[in-house]
């Protein structure tokens, strides 16, 4: 129960983080771009990646809730692809903004999330009679 609560909390926290970041970077205006030389369209593009990552964390939470291992696994790989893209773009943005702390922070978050995904995928039950690639009803996060 505690592990399930932790898993849901982790997913929702990440969804909230990315939607806040997405809204923040989308708030850069064309006037700011002209006045301060900000790369507004790049920020706007990153906001879409952030919204997509928010959606994937919500899907991951639903997959845990419904015990759907395949959905979880597919979404996790999709998410990892997205965050690698985000890390590359964000690295260039941090160079542009002279913020040396941004890339290590994002990479730390990425490592934490990868560890969580690896841990969570191992918590899905692999009982032989399950209907969805081994999952038995609800996710068995306390099964191992």
């Amino acid at each position: 129960m505690i592990k399930q609560f932790f898993a849901y909390s982790f997913c929702i926290t990440n969804a909230i983080i990315f939607i806040i970041v997405g809204i923040e970077v989308a708030n850069v205006t064309v006037e700011q771009a002209a006045l301060e030389g900000m790369t507004q369209r790049v920020y706007a593009s990153i906001s879409y990646v952030d919204y997509m990552m928010t959606a994937t964390w919500i899907v991951l939470a639903i997959a845990i809730m419904q015990g759907r291992r395949d959905l979880f696994l597919g979404t996790a790989w999709f998410y990892l692809g997205l965050i690698v893209c985000d890390a590359v773009i964000s690295h260039f943005m941090s160079v542009e903004a002279n913020d040396p702390t941004f890339t290590p922070m994002l990479l730390s978050l990425m490592v934490m999330q990868s560890i969580f995904l690896y841990w969570a995928i191992g918590r899905f039950s692999t009982a032989p009679n399950s209907s969805d690639a081994g999952a038995v009803g609800k996710v068995q996060l306390s099964g191992r």
Binding site: A34, G37, T39, Q40, R41
Partner: peptide, 8 residues
């Protein structure tokens, strides 16, 4: 500007 990097 498109990406805006060169605009300043």
């Amino acid at each position: 500007p498109q990406c805006g990097y060169c605009q300043s």
